[in-house]
């Protein structure tokens, strides 16, 4: 009996490892598909040739893949991964399945930061002008999360307080954003509205590098805390009785979330849904043993965002839709059908 159950448990874990590996493969395939799609269609052989440098590849294909499409495709992958990992950690440490950077005002704050650059022309001294929007968005998003952290540390501050503060922050940042929109020039207004829709069009190699570094630095720490985070799913009191320093866990986790969310949102603008749906889909597929749940969320987010990037190029031929619209409009119905089917079982 004992060994039978353990065997089944180990078999289940092996299946989960395979599933995570399969998700990685799907993510890579989605990137390749993303690379092949665009105003000038590239055949698979040429795309792979340009990527790997093998065989005869037209110079135009090389330029399209490396200069135009790869930064966009990788940015989609990384933004999805970062937002979903941030959402997964947030949902666990705030003990709320609705927590994600978007719902807790991080995205709205980033948009406000972007507006200060676009409308008011504020930027950090010494920073190249092309970076001022991203830099301000990053600082405001980071500031929003720092404010949340501070609120959480006040007397009686717990997950509920943090979430209420996040929602209040969302509305406050939204109100200030409207104010800036009200006073903005027509040009600035258009640019700002475009930014708040979320777009991969401005993806660049330096941006991709920054986000990749942030992800590479934070993800290992997330994984290292996997058991503690799993224990926290059994309740804060239980986790503490198991020896988890919950206050410390929450503080460091929210720091990781801050870096991930702020850098992702500052690169591409407001993108909802991925931070919420990535973890939910991963939870359905893998359960909440965070050794699998965290990488699963990261990869699900990456896949969802890559597919959204693909769809944003193909749904209206010749037009690149803002990817934030795609994630919300097309992602949500799929997400709800998944949830309802799950409930129906």
């Amino acid at each position: 009996m004992q060994t039978a159950s353990l065997h089944r448990y180990h078999a289940l874990n092996r299946r989960r490892v395979l599933l995570v590996a399969a998700m990685l493969a799907v993510a890579l395939l989605a990137v390749v598909a993303d690379l092949m799609t665009g105003p000038a269609g590239l055949p698979l052989a040429e795309t792979l040739g340009a990527l790997t440098g093998w065989g005869e590849v037209a110079r135009s294909a090389d330029v399209i893949v490396w200069q135009v499409r790869l930064p966009v495709a990788l940015m989609a992958l990384l933004v999805g991964a970062a937002l979903a990992l941030a959402g997964a950690e947030m949902q666990t440490v705030l003990e709320n399945p609705l927590a994600e950077p978007f719902t807790l005002g991080v995205s709205a704050s980033a948009a406000l930061g972007a507006a200060t650059a676009i409308v008011l022309g504020l930027s950090l001294p010494g920073l190249p002008a092309v970076w001022s929007v991203s830099a301000n968005a990053f600082l405001f998003a980071l500031g929003a999360l720092a404010l949340l952290q501070l609120m959480g540390r006040l007397r009686g501050g717990g997950p509920e307080v943090l979430i209420l503060c996040g929602i209040a922050l969302n509305f406050t940042a939204g109100a200030f954003l409207s104010l800036l929109q009200f006073v903005a020039s027509a040009d600035a207004l258009q640019q700002l509205v475009f930014w708040t829709m979320g777009s991969l069009a401005a993806a660049s190699w330096p941006g991709v590098t920054v986000l990749a570094v942030v992800l590479a630095v934070t993800a290992p720490f997330s994984l290292k805390a996997a058991w503690q985070l799993t224990a926290l799913r059994l309740g804060e009191e239980q986790a503490r009785s198991f020896g988890v320093d919950v206050v410390r866990l929450r503080r460091w986790s929210l720091l990781r979330v801050s870096l991930l969310a702020a850098s992702a949102v500052s690169m591409v603008g407001v993108i909802g849904f991925v931070g919420l749906a990535g973890p939910h889909i991963a939870r359905m597929l893998l359960g909440e043993d965070h050794r699998f749940f965290l990488p699963g969320s990261l990869l699900t987010g990456a896949v969802v965002m890559s597919l959204a990037s693909l769809v944003s190029k193909t749904v209206v031929p010749g037009v690149l839709l803002p990817v934030g619209l795609v994630t919300s409009l097309i992602g949500l119905p799929i997400f709800f059908s998944l949830i309802l089917r799950r409930r129906g079982r």
Partner: peptide, 12 residues
């Protein structure tokens, strides 16, 4: 929590 009984005890 989407955890099995065994997983919860292992986490403990």
């Amino acid at each position: 929590a989407a955890l099995s009984v065994l997983e919860s005890v292992i986490a403990a």
